[in-house]
Structure formats: C-alpha cells, structure tokens
Simulated scan of single mutants.
Amino acid sequence: MGLFSAILGAPLAPLKGTVWVAEQVHSEAEKRYYDPSAIRRQLEEVSAAKDSGAISDEEADKLERDLVARLLESTRRRKSKENP
C-alpha cells in the first residue's frame, strides 16, 4: 500500500511542499506579530513619537489600543497553549 500511495501521491509532492512552507511562514509571522517584547517595544515607540509630536494624540491612542489588544491576545494564546 505504501508503494502505491507514493506513486499516486508523487504528482502532489510539490503542492504538499508548498503548503508546508506556507504553514511555516504563517507560523513564524504569528510568532513575531504576537511577540510580547516586540509589542512593548512598539508601545514605547508610539509613546516617543507622541511625545516628540511626530504623531497626534488621536493617532497614538488608536495605535496604543491596537497594540494592547495584540498584547492581550498574545497572553490569551500563550495560556491556551499551556492549558489545552
């Protein structure tokens, strides 16, 4: 059975490889997007930009809300991995 499935599955090998690579890229992108230290660094950058006048208070508030939401989601994801 293994030989037949290998022969029949051979044409799909490039597709399977592409899907695997896409899954790996997606996983790494999520890790970076929800990395708490990166989010905190971005919050500090927003605060510095607001203090220097590079962005308005309204823009800073929106960015901060989005970053805090990501940080909360990061915490939720970590807890769900620890307690499946």
Rank of each mutant, 00 (worst) to 15 (best):
R65Q: 12
E59H: 03
V25Q: 05
E45R: 12
E45S: 07
H26Q: 10
P84T: 06
G9Q: 06
V46Y: 01
I7A: 11
E45G: 06
I55P: 01
D51K: 13
Y34L: 12
E58D: 14
K16C: 05
I55R: 03
T75G: 06
V46P: 02
M1I: 10
L8Q: 05
E30P: 02
P84Q: 07
L67V: 03
S37C: 02
L72R: 15
E28A: 11
V21F: 13
I55G: 02
R76A: 13
A6Y: 03
V19I: 15
R32Q: 11
Q42D: 08
S47K: 15
V46L: 07
L12S: 10
R76W: 14
S52C: 01
A54C: 00
A49K: 11
H26L: 10
Y33T: 09
A38D: 06
Y33A: 08
L43T: 05
W20F: 11
V25Y: 07
G17F: 08
T18E: 08
R78P: 01
S47M: 09
D66R: 11
K79I: 15
L67T: 04
I7N: 00
K50Y: 06
K16H: 07
R78G: 12
E44P: 00
H26K: 10
V46K: 00
R76F: 15
E44M: 11
P84Y: 04
K62T: 07
K81Q: 14
M1V: 11
K31G: 02
R40S: 03
M1L: 08
S52R: 15
Q24T: 09
M1Q: 07
A6V: 03
D57A: 15
R40E: 07
T18I: 08
A29T: 11
A13N: 05
A54V: 08
L71W: 05
E23D: 09
S52Q: 11
A6F: 06
A49T: 03
L8M: 13
E64G: 03
K31L: 11
S5Y: 13
D66Y: 08
E64Q: 14
L3C: 02
H26S: 08
E82L: 15
H26Y: 12
G53S: 03
A49P: 04
E58Y: 08
R76I: 14
P36L: 04
D61T: 15
M1G: 12
A22D: 03
K79W: 14
A10M: 10
A10Y: 09
T75Y: 07
L12P: 03
